[in-house]
C-alpha cells in the first residue's frame, strides 16, 4: 500500500470518527429529537427571556423558544418541550414563572395528576408568577413602617425631655416639692396624714397600746410565777399527783387485802352452806315434830286440792 493511500485512509477514518462523535453528541442533546411547542400567556413579559429553562421537578425539560405580544396586549410565550419529556405536560399542569432572589428565573411546571390527558398544543395556558424579590419587599415594608414609627416616638420623647414644660420636667419638679415637704415635716406620718392633730391622736393611741403591752407583760410574769413559781399551781398539782400516786400504791395493798378477804369469804361461804344445811335439817326436824304432834293431836284429813 502506498503512502498516499494510507494518509487518505487516515483522514477519511478520522473524519468519520469526528462526524460520528458529533452526531452522537447532537443526538444526545436532542438535536434530532422531535419537540412539542406549547403556548403560555402572561400579562407582563418582565423577567421572561428567550432560552429561559422550563423545569419539572428540578430537571430541565425544555426552554422558552419565542416571546411575542398578541392583539390584546398579552404576552404569548412559546416553550419547546422535547418528546421524551412531553409526558410530564398534562392538561392540569400549572406553569409558574419563578424569579428567585438569587439565581436565574425559570418556568416551573407542576403536574398534580400524571394520569390526566396530555395538554393540547393549540391550547394557551395562563402562566402565574412567583417573585421572591417582590415578596421580600412586601415583607420588609411593614417593618420599615414600624422603624419609622419608633423613630418618630424617639423624636417626640427627646422633644419632651428638652421641653421645660414637658411631662418629665413636671415630674421632677413635683419630686422636688415632695422632698422639700419631707424635710420640713417632723415625720413621714405627718406628711401622709397632713394633719398635726390626727398625728398626735395616733401617737397617744400608740402610747396606750405600749402601756397595755407592758401590763400584759406584767400579767404574764405574774401568771408565770403563779403557775411555775415555788408555790405556784403546777408544783402543787405535781405534789397532789405524787400524793395520789402514793395513795394508789397503798390502795394496791388494800385491793390485795380485799382480794384476800373475798377469798376467805368464799371459803367461809362453804361453811355458811354447811350451816344453812344444818339449819334446814333443824327446821325440817322441828317441822316433822310439829307435824307428828299435829297428827297426834288433831284428826287431820287428807288435803284436797280444790280450785278456788
Amino acid at each position: 500500500m502506498s503512502r498516499d493511500l494510507k494518509v487518505g485512509l487516515f483522514i477519511v477514518g478520522t473524519t468519520i470518527i469526528i462526524l460520528a462523535a458529533l452526531l452522537y453528541l447532537a443526538n444526545e442533546k436532542g438535536l434530532f429529537a422531535n419537540t412539542y411547542v406549547f403556548t403560555l400567556s402572561s400579562k407582563s413579559g418582565d423577567g421572561l427571556t428567550e432560552g429561559m429553562p422550563v423545569v419539572f421537578s428540578g430537571f430541565d425539560i425544555g426552554k422558552v423558544s419565542t416571546l411575542e405580544l398578541n392583539d390584546k396586549g398579552m404576552v404569548l410565550i412559546k416553550i419547546k418541550i422535547a418528546q421524551r419529556h412531553v409526558k410530564w405536560i398534562k392538561a392540569d399542569s400549572a406553569f409558574i414563572l419563578y424569579r428567585p432572589l438569587i439565581g436565574a428565573a425559570r418556568i416551573v411546571v407542576t403536574t398534580n395528576n400524571l394520569n390526566s390527558p396530555p395538554l393540547p398544543e393549540d391550547k394557551i395556558v395562563a402562566m402565574e408568577t412567583v417573585n421572591d424579590i417582590n415578596d421580600a419587599i412586601k415583607k420588609v415594608q411593614p417593618l420599615l413602617e414600624k422603624i419609622t414609627q419608633i423613630a418618630e416616638n424617639l423624636e417626640r420623647l427627646s422633644n419632651n425631655l428638652s421641653d421645660p414644660k414637658g411631662d418629665l420636667n413636671r415630674i421632677l419638679s413635683n419630686a422636688q416639692i415632695i422632698t422639700k415637704t419631707l424635710s420640713s415635716k417632723k415625720s413621714f406620718l405627718e406628711m401622709a396624714v397632713a394633719d398635726e392633730e390626727s398625728v398626735q391622736s395616733i401617737y397617744e393611741a400608740l402610747k396606750k397600746v405600749k402601756d397595755i403591752v407592758t401590763k400584759i407583760d406584767k400579767m404574764a410574769d405574774k401568771m408565770d410565777k403563779q403557775l411555775y413559781g415555788k408555790e405556784g399551781t403546777l408544783p402543787n398539782i405535781n405534789q397532789i399527783l405524787k400524793d395520789i400516786a402514793g395513795k394508789l400504791q397503798k390502795l394496791d395493798k388494800t385491793v390485795d387485802n380485799i382480794n384476800k378477804i373475798s377469798t376467805d369469804t368464799s371459803d367461809g361461804m362453804k361453811d355458811f352452806r354447811m350451816l344453812r344445811s344444818d339449819i334446814d335439817d333443824t327446821v325440817n326436824a322441828i317441822d316433822d315434830v310439829a307435824k307428828k304432834l299435829d297428827d297426834l293431836i288433831s284428826s287431820k284429813k287428807d288435803p284436797e286440792f280444790k280450785l278456788p
Partner: peptide
Amino acid sequence: ACGSSQPIPQWKDTSFRQLETYK
C-alpha cells in the same frame, strides 16, 4: 285410833300447805 289412820304423804302435805301460804 290415832295410830291406825294412814300418814299423809310428805309431798302432798308440803304442796298443800305452801299453796295455802301462797294464796
